[in-house]
Design a protein around this nucleic acid. Structure first.
Lengths: 235, 235
DNA sequence: GCAAATCGGGTTGTATACAAAACTGTGTCC
DNA sequence: GGACACAGTTTTGTATACAACCCGATTTGC
């Protein structure tokens, strides 16, 4: 390890607490830098962040409660691999919660809220132009979370946040390469409806946006299509 | 400490793992044996269950993720005290999720499921007859959770379970003494609709049942009505 | 040569020890 | 007499040490 790398690790060391580790891992999962099934060894993570296993364990348990990682007793923590069934359930839940949330958001959004949403879309475009798919996906999720926040229902927003986190794993596992990731249009239209205060239209746009997303997944009965081979190989 | 007490503690000691501690605390909160705001000192809990603080911390963190306890840094863990706003949100979320879940349950319930629900009601009556309000409340919550399980949507069922857990705290804080806890009629009618497969009626019954519950709470703008004095007194 | 059992390395689960922070009570100064 | 400051005690946050367990490899028996 060279001097510079050592120094940057040292910098992390000073700031890294339990929450830091959890959000860093969470971000890596959201941006598809950590693939489903990857083992997260405690010692390994502890050394990377320069903290003890105690805090790593707490972070991993927090992620496990959000169902982002799967902890198997005496086996360790792995990035979760949602089953087909879970994938369907997550999107059904989103289709139940988010349209209504978008409707509320359209009724409550302030000009500041709308500016924020527009900035999100700009960032998303920038990430796509930079071919940074991971960041684009993360920003796309943040867009949905922002709408839930605007709807001013913290409890439901929390559920939606958890669903979006799992959606990121589901997309990593079941996304069809054929379908393009050009959701920006849908997001743009949504912001339009929200800024006009057209709640009915916002609700309908969100519903169809989620149906589009859902149908861009390959959720046919075939357990873990691309995973079973790698599973036998890696962990 | 006498011999016998020592032995029973020792028995606990052998079986108590992290999960055990968490569910024991959770049950105590559900049955209103632990009041909102109660401090859960790590050493105290650790000694009670005969485990180390390590496992107690994990259990408390798990409960915190379910929003049953509130962990304040360097202050410790306290049984959560949902605000009026949170209380409203929780019941709004339940009114959004549970009617639809009851509808699904009515469409999918097997005879075994219906028997289980009927047994739940019998148990509930028994607890009420024994004047065991805590147990009755817990069983009432389990009834709702069971319906969510029958609906066969694990993701949404998990959300509902979390909402019911928080509802228990909300009831502890905001329940109006005037209103009686005679929900058994509502539960009975629900089982009737479900066993007939009348999904429309099940949905409507669940909705009105939740509205009844909601309106039996005192959620007027008056922050933590019975709590602010005790709050100044205890913690 | 193959199968089964056993032994070793490595990883997780739990307990304990130490460091840091908050709360309590006392004392002093204004 | 009241308010502030300081120190002691208690409690939490983190690191480390040890025990239990799982997995893989080697060895042994058939």
């Amino acid at each position: 390890m060279n001097e510079q790398a050592n120094r940057s690790l040292e910098a992390l060391k000073n700031t890294a607490s339990g929450e830091t580790v959890a959000s860093a891992l969470s971000l890596a999962i959201h941006e598809h830098r950590l693939a489903p099934g990857t083992k997260l060894g405690e010692d390994e993570v502890a050394e990377i962040f320069g903290v003890s296993r105690t805090v790593v364990r707490a972070a991993l348990q927090a992620l496990a409660h959000h169902q982002l990682v799967d902890i198997r007793r005496n086996r360790g923590a792995f990035v979760a691999q949602p089953s087909l069934r879970e994938a369907r359930e997550v999107f059904e839940a989103r289709e139940l919660l988010e349209p209504r949330t978008a409707k509320s958001a359209a009724m409550r959004a302030t000009p500041d809220d709308i500016d924020l949403l527009k900035r999100h879309i700009v960032d998303e475009h920038a990430a796509l132009d930079a071919a940074d798919q991971g960041r684009a996906l993360r920003l796309s999720g943040l867009f949905h979370i922002e709408i839930a926040r605007i709807a001013d229902q913290a409890t439901i927003a929390g559920f939606i946040e958890a669903l979006i986190a799992r959606s990121s794993l589901i997309i990593a596992l079941y996304w069809r390469r054929e379908s393009a990731l050009c959701e920006s249009f849908a997001h743009h239209a949504l912001v339009g409806a929200i800024s006009e205060g057209n709640s009915q239209r916002a609700e309908e746009l969100m519903r169809s946006h989620l149906v589009d997303l859902h149908s861009a997944l390959d959720l046919r009965d075939r357990p873990n299509p691309p995973r079973s081979l790698r599973d036998a190989l890696r962990p």
